[in-house]
């Protein structure tokens, strides 16, 4: 299968990329690692008339310390993120979740920023960004803009990015001491997409839960924060009973899709079970 023809630009700097994207108009797509875009192009589910390839902009691959946060360049590959000492030390939820994304060859090309901008509800990293209160850093001819993850994932494969806006990085607040994290992913084969996934961070205070953050993958057209679970588990003792009972709220207010991998009802049930497991694993981490 061969993609439809498109124009191709390979800018060398962020400024050039922003200009090229503006020149190209709204039928252009940004090419990051291409691991989601390329299948869409080949199947002709996407027919952009220009691609802006960010592959040669070294500055976008940087991962740097920003005081109480880490800034991950949008073009940092999954492979790079998994091995990065800053990410491993301060954002272990991102490192561990990224290890579950696709397979090694795809992780060599696929990028952190690309996964977020693609906004696939079955993608693992959007829920993680949501759970960690990440902020997406955006550039356009109009200047810079910051979009909180809670406002970034708008709908099915739709982000808050305007057609001329480029995602340049993601600022993720470090989790301090006392936090345990876990990503619980349910899929049928090793490299498959999550049928449901649960991104979870728990801050312990002695034998009880001081605070929890929970976000769900593939439980709706966009990743969702499970606020009802977070409220239900706050202040509760660390025990299977607390986690089961809090996990019972995981599907509250969600609209999970039905597809060939599972019905909406099945996903709702799965979310409650996986959330209880994720809370327990994060509390034990």
């Amino acid at each position: 299968m061969i993609p439809a023809a498109f124009d191709y630009a390979r800018p060398r700097s962020v400024d050039e990329a922003v200009r090229a994207l503006a020149d190209a108009g709204e039928d252009a797509k940004v090419l990051a690692g291409g691991q989601s875009l390329m299948p869409l192009l080949r199947l002709r589910l996407a027919i952009p008339d220009a691609l802006i390839d960010l592959g040669r902009i070294a500055a976008l691959r940087e991962i740097r310390d920003d005081g109480d946060a880490v800034v991950i360049g949008s073009m940092a590959t999954h492979h790079q993120v998994i091995r990065d000492p800053l990410v491993r030390a301060h954002l272990p939820l991102i490192a561990r979740t990224t290890e579950t994304v696709a397979d090694p060859a795809v992780r060599h090309r696929g990028t952190f920023g690309g996964s977020l901008a693609h906004a696939d509800p079955a993608g693992d990293l959007p829920a993680v960004a949501l759970a960690l209160d990440a902020v997406l850093l955006v550039r356009s001819p109009r200047g810079e803009r910051e979009i909180p993850a809670a406002e970034f994932f708008v709908d099915w494969m739709t982000s808050a990015l305007e057609p001329d806006e480029l995602l340049v990085g993601v600022r993720v607040p470090k989790l301090g001491p006392g936090w345990g994290v876990h990503y619980e992913k349910f899929h049928r084969t090793a490299q498959a997409w999550a049928i449901v996934g649960v991104a979870c961070a728990v801050r312990r205070d002695g034998d009880s839960v001081a605070e929890a953050r929970v976000a769900l993958t593939n439980m709706g057209p966009a990743p969702v924060r499970a606020g009802a679970v977070e409220d239900a588990v706050r202040g509760r003792p660390i025990s299977d009973d607390s986690f089961r009972s809090a996990g019972g709220h995981a599907a509250d207010g969600t609209e999970p899709p039905s597809d060939l991998h599972g019905s909406s009802e099945y996903r709702s049930h799965l979310a409650t079970v996986l959330t209880a497991r994720a809370l327990a694993a994060a509390a034990a981490a």
Binding site: A4, D23, A24, L45, I47, P48, N218, D259
Partner: peptide, 29 residues
């Protein structure tokens, strides 16, 4: 990626196919 049955897959503009004759972007090659 999964395709929910009730939603159409994402598309570029399918109806308009630009002719290949006229370069219109400075970087077009």
């Amino acid at each position: 990626m999964t395709w929910p049955d009730q939603r159409a897959p994402p598309q570029g503009r399918l109806s308009v196919k630009r002719t290949l004759s006229t370069p219109r972007r400075p970087w077009e090659k």
